[in-house]
Amino acid sequence: MIDRSAETALIELVREVAKAEILPRFRRLDATEIDTKSGPEDLVTAADLAAEAKLVEGIARIMPDAEVVGEEGVAADPSRLDLLSGSGCVVVVDPVDGTWNFARGLAVFGVILAVVEDGRTVFGLLYDPVFDDWFAARRGGGAWTGGAGRVDRPLTIDGTMPVSEASGYVPVNLYPEELRMAVSQATFRTGGARSLRCSCHEYRLLASGAVDYLISGLLKPWDHLAGALITREAGGFAAMMGGQPYRPFTTEGQLVAASSYPLWSGVSELFETALQSQMPASSTSS
């Protein structure tokens, strides 16, 4: 388990990199500084690349024995994801989560960092560069929120509302086209669902009690490892739909996070039923 001094150093590194490489480019990007990766909605900017490079350098100083798995590094070399299946320490970073928002001048973006040791997430950080504050958690040590000039405050959630009153985040557009209608219709049986296009802020709002659940079928480790840990340490529950643990190397399936286990169970059942209704009969029968 990393010690408190390393946690503090990582938080300070993220703050410094955001101040130097991300914020100066916000709403100042030239068209030549925005590119696409897997498709027109999957963007990368000069800020993503510069911030990840500085984070990699800083992590090497703070934790010289750790490997780094970054979103942009994996885009260049997908084999780096294999590091999450092995032993040892791996730091997972998303240098600008919510790049689509960032590139369009929307102040809904953040930096996500998670530390994985021997296949378990032991530290997670969700950082907001605009307000210079963060949500963080250590495995077995609780979750908290902090910020510049602020005293750390514990995070505690315990959702007691029925599914029909629970509001959350469901990125319907990320599902295959043939499943979108069923997923969308399922959201109408909850208290409402939307998407911020930013895992960092979606998990922050869940951990603060502002929303009650979130679902994702696109499992990139830099998007979810920190948020899932923070949810659990704050008193909520996060696992794969069906109950399997969510692990750093999990890449397929539906991840559900909620402010309590009973709510997680109800939301999972609702959306699992909706998804199964669209599956071919041969794949749903046993």
Rank of each mutant, 00 (worst) to 15 (best):
W134E: 03
D48F: 10
L43K: 11
P262D: 03
A47P: 05
A47F: 07
N173A: 13
T156Q: 06
A239H: 08
T284S: 12
A50K: 07
G159Y: 05
G168R: 14
P24H: 07
D132I: 08
T231K: 01
E165V: 02
P95K: 12
F131K: 14
Q254W: 11
V90A: 12
K220W: 14
D3T: 04
R104A: 05
G243Q: 04
V90R: 03
L81D: 01
L206E: 02
E165I: 01
E7D: 10
D158P: 00
Q276A: 15
Q278N: 07
A51L: 02
T190Y: 11
E21L: 06
E117Y: 10
A18F: 01
S164D: 06
L155W: 01
L275V: 00
G227L: 04
Q278F: 08
A53R: 15
R27E: 06
V44F: 08
N173V: 07
V93M: 15
A281M: 12
L49N: 07
G86P: 10
I2H: 02
T250V: 04
I62R: 13
F102S: 03
G39V: 07
G227N: 06
G140F: 12
Y261W: 10
R194Q: 11
A75N: 12
E233T: 02
G191E: 14
V69C: 05
Q185R: 14
V56W: 02
L179K: 09
F249I: 00
R120H: 14
E16P: 01
V211H: 09
H201Y: 15
D158A: 13
V44E: 04
V256Q: 04
K220P: 01
A136D: 04
V130S: 08
I11D: 04
H201E: 08
R25C: 05
Y175W: 15
D30L: 14
L125V: 00
P176D: 00
H224M: 07
A46L: 04
D132K: 14
V122Q: 10
D118A: 08
V267Q: 13
K19E: 07
Q244N: 11
T273N: 15
F26W: 08
R189P: 04
E67L: 14
W100C: 06
D3V: 08
A76Y: 00
M279R: 12
F131H: 15
